[in-house]
Write a protein that binds this DNA or RNA. Structure first.
Lengths: 210, 210
DNA sequence: GTCTATAATCAGATAGAC
DNA sequence: GTCTATCTGATTATAGAC
């Protein structure tokens, strides 16, 4: 017999809506500058009600991080499939870019987040390490197939630059250019920046594709 | 006849000390999370006294930005001298790196700063544009001397990556690596990242130097 | 210039009715 | 699940004595 959704169902519509709206506000103004009152107002509910769904602001932030973790892990799982098609890597990169944009406050306001909830530190660090390893595996795979020609001593610096550009590209647009919403043009620009970074090391076979 | 320092002298020792200590706290915790009480305590003075020197927190932030502007302009002035020595650029870069680190909260917490004081937006944008133009001039100079070989269509992407790595490198260390203080090792690492970025485009004459 | 109050405001959070 | 009402604590800022 099918049970009705439990009252505190994690997938509750209101709860999910709060998370979505909070994410938007966090990206716009930083979690420190977004009050629970604003979040409640955005969700069209009362502050008291908000505190029914999330007993602390920290719990709300954690729920946003939960969602990011889930999204990032989905992406990672796809990356793990050792596709023979090098353009698959490009698709993954594109999705990574959109993800970094959608959750850019996580990177940008990390200090405030850690102050809000020191327990987050371990989760964030672990997630970050996991993602960076995935990038390295991806790049190493291209290298082994001679699609990427990089001398050993230049590989780690290249990876670090790749990571910096691919993660801070969104902040760069956000802060320096005052971009409020991600358009396909911006996404293309960010991909172009990564392409520019890789270009000197690409095998001729890939030059045409990337 | 030499006048005694005016009571509200901009260079007043206490005032300057407050700015220095506030800068340190802002870098550590972000301006939003640093209270006037903490700043006063760090300076070893009373909160009321702090408000004698800076009538609002915003005025204090503006004073920190004043100092950054002055430091950045000093650097810019040196860059404007068209030195024949290409290693001079490396020295400038090194100083830029130290500057970005010393004032890293300006980049990191810009959204909060703009919320605190919208008037800052124009100053920050102007300064940022000014600095980026300086970088472009510097790079263009190397190009004209055939020390940097970059096709036209790859020049702007290279500049953008240069800017992203050279400015966000400090945030990367700060947020991802949890670095608290900048050591010569970190500085060397950052310079290595920029070198890695430029390496594919350097003329053989420069490869040995950089 | 520096201090001791203290005001004014606003954030996060709770209790309990509906 | 949602609301109203309220509390507590922290933070910016002011008034006025020393």
């Amino acid at each position: 017999m099918r049970r009705k959704k439990a009252a505190t169902n994690k997938g509750g519509a209101t709860r999910q809506r709060i998370v979505t709206l909070a994410l938007g506000l966090f990206n716009e103004n930083g979690p420190d500058r977004v009050t629970t009152a604003q979040i409640a107002a955005a969700a069209g509910i009362n502050e008291g009600n908000l505190y029914y769904h999330f007993r602390t602001k920290e719990a709300l932030v954690a729920a946003v991080l939960d969602r990011f973790e889930a999204d990032a892990m989905d992406l990672l799982a796809e990356g793990a499939e050792d596709s023979a098609d090098p353009t698959a890597s490009l698709g993954l990169l594109q999705r990574w870019f959109a993800l970094v944009w959608d959750y850019r406050f996580l990177l940008r306001d990390m200090i405030g987040l850690l102050a809000l909830s020191p327990e987050l530190r371990l989760r964030v660090r672990a997630l970050s390490a996991h993602l960076r390893e995935a990038v390295e595996v991806l790049a190493q795979r291209l290298r082994e197939r001679d699609l990427l020609i990089v001398p050993d001593e230049q590989f780690q610096p290249l990876l670090a630059n790749l990571w910096i550009v691919a993660t801070y590209w969104a902040l760069y647009l956000d802060l320096h250019e005052g971009i409020a919403a991600l358009t396909p043009d911006h996404l293309a620009w960010g991909l172009g920046q990564v392409r520019s970074l890789l270009r000197p090391y690409l095998a001729p076979a890939l030059q045409a594709l990337v």
